[in-house]
Design a protein around this nucleic acid. Structure first.
Lengths: 194, 194
DNA sequence: AAAGCTACTTGATATAGATCAAGTTCAGTC
DNA sequence: GACTGAACTTGATCTATATCAAGTAGCTTT
């Protein structure tokens, strides 16, 4: 994919702010490579999220467990940011788990280094503001679908919106992401195949 | 409440960043007072949200309408920020409506003036970053409840968390906020009164 | 390539909560 | 301060989706 793993992060960052070479050097200085096998737990419940991630290639899911049932809040893949943001921001133990669904590698940055970025250059804080803005918009759309859509509408919108990604994610996790049981998901799939 | 309406905004802003007098003067310069009666539509569907609001006193709800059913995503009251954030950020017409449930007044700032703040002083961008962070955390909690809690659990958590505010909000809007019908809300109320 | 898991499928049944319906109470208006 | 429409309550019924169950297909590991 990317020979130099920094390029993937740079592409993502420059979606929000343009940086010259000197700025990029400063920005990228404290990010460190990470790599996980498939099925590894990256951040576990009761842990304080130490890192903010950028996924170069791979796939992760964020979920929480309530009485043995898992609820996925979202997935991060090639070119996405990732992490347990509420714990990262509040420095309080997490209710959430971050786990890989594929071998996943990319770059991560620790909390103190992340915060230090913002004192180096206001552009970096602008990047973060825009990142949080976009994350907020994403969750707003997600909530809208959860509240107003029937199971069938949710399923139809998902395949319209993300035809490729859903090939890579086990159905039970997609079902959980859409707020329905795996059986319901499977039945919708059969119904809509026609 | 506040004799000088700027003081309410300042209290909110300084929750995230401390400002000296000069900085505060710069920050507050372009905010303008607003005032609405009860039941007024502040931002309507298909409008591009022109303002970012700070509610000094009063109560607003944000909702969207799907086939005649309204879904509340949240409320803003005394000391809260408010607005249709996705439209404000993307400059695209809104699917959402912002409406007052009480006479509401405070301060607002236009999009260009809001963005201009961030070029004046990096502290102002830090304030915005932290605001979006906190909004993101709030929506995460909201989603968690929607996905995993039963109607009764949602109701119990609401009265535990917001005993005072719920006195001010009509039940049908609280029901919609919790993702249940007004009848279910009413029945839970009767059940838990015991 | 057989064994053993886990993921999916499909059918039968159960249920939380929605919808429909008919009062009742309450708040705003003249 | 009676009138009117909206908000709430309570009961009866309905339904979308969950849960339970049993079988099948598809990976993984040796």
């Amino acid at each position: 994919m990317y020979v130099n793993s920094l390029e993937s992060l740079r592409t993502s960052v420059e979606r929000f702010v343009a940086l010259d070479e000197e700025e990029w050097k400063q920005f990228s200085m404290n990010w460190i490579p990470f790599s996980f096998d498939k099925g590894e737990t990256v951040t576990r419940i009761d842990q304080v999220e130490p890192y903010f991630y950028h996924v170069n290639k791979g796939l992760m899911r964020g979920y929480f467990d309530a009485d043995g049932t898992e609820y996925n809040i979202g997935f991060s893949y090639d070119g996405d940011y990732s992490g347990i943001y509420d714990s990262f921001v509040t420095r309080k133990p997490s209710d959430w788990t971050l786990e890989t669904l594929e071998p996943t590698y990319g770059l991560k940055i620790g909390y103190d280094q992340f915060e230090a970025l913002f004192d180096l250059n206001p552009k970096f804080e602008r990047w973060a503001r825009k990142f949080y803005q976009s994350a907020l918009i994403g969750l707003g759309l997600f909530i809208r679908g959860l509240l107003a859509d029937t199971a069938e509408e949710k399923y139809r919108k998902l395949i319209a919106r993300s035809p490729h990604v859903i090939q890579r994610i086990p159905q039970k996790h997609l079902a959980s992401y859409l707020g329905m049981s795996p059986e319901t998901y499977s039945r919708l799939r059969a119904k809509i195949r026609d």
